[in-house]
Design a protein around this nucleic acid. Sequence first.
DNA 1: GCCGTTTTCGGCCCGACTGTTTTCAGTCG
Length: 581
Amino acid sequence: MPRTNDEVARLLDELAVLTEIAEGDPNAFRVRAYQNAHRAVLGLDRDAGEMSEADLARVKGLGKSTAAKIREYVQTGTIAKLEELRAAHPRGQRDLLKVPGLGAKTVGLLQATLGITDLPGLQAAIDDGRLAGLPGMGAKTVENLAAAIGKLGLTSKDRRVPIADAMSVAERTVAVLAHVPGVVDAAYAGSLRRFRETIGDLDLLVATDDPEPVRTTFLALDEVDRVIGSGETKTSVVTRDGLQIDLRVVPPGSFGAAMVYFTGSKAHNIRLRQRALDRGLTLNEYALAHHDDTAEVIASVTEEDVYAALGLPWITPELREDDGEIEAATAGQLPDLPTLADIRGDLHVHTDLSGDGHEPLERMVAALVDRGRDYVGITDHAENLTINGVSRAAMEAQRLRLRELEQRRGDVRLLHGAELNIGVDGSLDYDPAFLATFDWLVASVHSHFGRSVAEQTARVVAAIREPSVTAIGHLTGRMVGRRPGIELDVEQVLDAAAETGTAIEINASLHRLDAPATVVREGLARGACFVISTDSHRIGDLDRMRFGVAQARRAGASKDAIVNTLDADRFLAWIDAVRGA
DNA sequence: GCCGTTTTCGGCCCGACTGTTTTCAGTCG
């Protein structure tokens, strides 16, 4: 992603926020135009700084006015309109907008009536009673605002939690709600279902004709810290961990329309609703219906029904970002995405031979076969990872056990592999001759995360170019929401991988999801191939393969770019081709 | 501010909940 695009996108976002304050309306057309322009720039595959005004204006979502602003920024380093808005609306007003319950209208009212333009000013007005004197400001509203300010940073509008944290809460809560009497269906939706890396709030959906027991059960959950609001069909709470959960209850006949609606994204939904209007229909969370007095329902029960009635194939949630998926669906060009059932092998698995593994080889293999794997790569840490790695002699002994086990079982191909450690200088464990005796080798970065782009790129490319290495594990080393990855020249790394045929891992751990979807997408464009792996250290980890599949789907990877969708014979032939190359 | 295989002007997605209103505005998703 060109640096200019990030900067321009940030400025367009600021323009949207400041315009929202200036116009006093988050739905003002100009605000939405800037938001669309923001997304359009983030979606560019070229450097906006190198594009002419005319080229920019031709991009969908950018027009004459925004194109001129982008050129103005590139040439002068500033945008007059933005400076004007910054002068009229101090920094503190943007903080006010982040307070839950405070919107653009009220922020404008505060400035116009009391001259308040920041959080300390608002707090003072609450404390001395001036706020309560404003029209529309009853005791309850003031009380809610005071509480919201106290919790700011814990539950503010821009706080996001890593997907791993949200997923566990979501799956637990959905399981509880699914067992409430009368519940026909229960699921999570929103950005979690779209498989975004971080989640703003959790959207849960329940189908039932009897909403009250669902609400009662939900509000009684142990995690619930406080209730934001609760009506007949919609209840919002905040958990002790500060995660907001929105629960919606709909009649079973509306579940499909509701899932479309609450899965989003907002931009995807707007496109669908525009598409509905073009067809004389209207789409809401209850149904796709005729846009007339009859309001006759066209589709509502399943998502497939709704998409079909809009002339589209069902679009997988991971792609619903209005990032070209609707155009691709219209043209019948959606990628042939992998599903969990397509996964034939797991090629990154540890046993108790690794210091951090927990299961003996035999039990791990049995669990893998239970999960339908036809081939498996056993990849314990090699010797250079000093804490957990194992010696050459131990590797050779494991290989004998592996061959014997494969013979004895006869129902799975066992590849003897290792997870090599990519040293700070790009060096690998053992020696090239010994490396060549392995069936499969994953090479990964485990240390020295703070080096320069040039150093990191060189060490990873060196590993890619080692002929015996078949895959690069968790490419960036990032931990979602906790640790940034190493800085890489991604294009250079992906080009090297495409050239040598070395697969890039899609690590299925929700904490990693590495390579990131944006990198996978870039790799697909550059002809690289990928392997979805669980990096399991215990049997339970094997079940996260589905998350790796979701990550691949989010990147828009078709099955033929994922090498472990190949059957065993083709997969082994693929390894030979890569190592011969 | 953007957009147009009916449009270059006149549109622009839809509904729930709260708190304050006697019929609705603001916020949120």
